[in-house]
């Protein structure tokens, strides 16, 4: 079993598998997103306090969930690479980071758009928005560090150490921001206190979260294929691939 896993962990073996899986994940992402948006716009009831504007929650909350989840996945890959010295792990971490940063940005952007009609201001120092902002900084730091080290193997290992350092700190940061928020503002202006959760709303958010997850697979896999080709450009199998194409 483990040897099979290691076999797929070789970039050369993973390259065609990822290529075959990408269309499936892309289609799944599209179908789930359509279903989620249908629930969001046509099934979920209008909120009696916030009116229609609250519907942005179907983008905001799934994006926030997936952005945090992707950071964990990225750190997991990075840690695996550091411990087992597998080449693919660092490449996967590099491939996931931009998608994670994109969802973090989406959560911030949608939070701002939600804040304007609801509280008349684009930015509130709400606990979730603030945590997302710090998370965005962590993603940017990870990508900046990897970009600044020219040797890919060293960049992978340094990035892995940073990601692990970040993953220990994320819960501490999240907790400290929560604490800071309740102490300074009370919960009156907070995105965290969403309208009372109806079952259909949860369904819509879950569908959107799964759509975002499948989208992450598709983009990370296509990005990792590009990274594999770039790093293994001198390898025999890449040359054969190029000759065949």
């Amino acid at each position: 079993m483990t040897s099979r896993l290691f076999q797929f962990a070789a970039p050369q073996a993973f390259f065609p598998i990822a290529g075959k899986l990408i269309p499936w994940f892309a289609v799944l992402a599209g179908v789930l997103a359509l279903a989620g948006l249908y629930v969001a716009f046509f099934i979920a009831p209008t909120d009696h306090q916030q009116g229609e504007a609250y519907r942005i929650i179907f983008i905001h909350v799934p994006a926030a969930w997936v952005s945090m989840f992707l950071y964990l996945v990225m750190a997991g890959w990075a840690g695996l690479g550091l411990a087992l010295n597998t080449r693919l792990s660092g490449m996967m971490a590099s491939a996931i980071a931009p998608t994670g940063a994109m969802f973090t940005f989406l959560a911030l952007w949608s939070g701002a758009l939600w804040g304007k009609p609801t509280w008349g201001t684009y930015w509130v120092w709400d606990a979730r928005l603030t945590s997302e902002l710090v998370l965005l900084f962590l993603y940017l730091g990870f990508m900046a560090l990897k970009a600044a080290i020219p040797d890919p193997v060293r960049a992978d290992r340094a990035g892995a150490i940073l990601a692990l350092l970040g993953v220990v700190n994320v819960p501490i940061i999240y907790f400290s921001v929560q604490w800071w928020n309740t102490l300074h503002q009370g919960a009156s202006v907070s995105l965290t206190r969403a309208p009372s959760m109806a079952a259909t709303m949860l369904l819509g958010m879950l569908l959107m979260a799964f759509a975002a997850w499948m989208y992450s697979f598709a983009t990370a896999f296509s990005r990792v294929r590009a990274i594999i080709l770039e790093r293994e450009r001198d390898a025999e199998w890449v040359r054969l691939q190029r000759a065949a194409a």
Partner: peptide, 18 residues
């Protein structure tokens, strides 16, 4: 690493939030 000072700030300041 080139540009080490600014990069160091970017890496480490978010961890100082707590």
């Amino acid at each position: 690493v080139r540009g080490g000072g600014a990069l160091l700030a970017l890496l480490i300041l978010p961890l100082f939030v707590p």
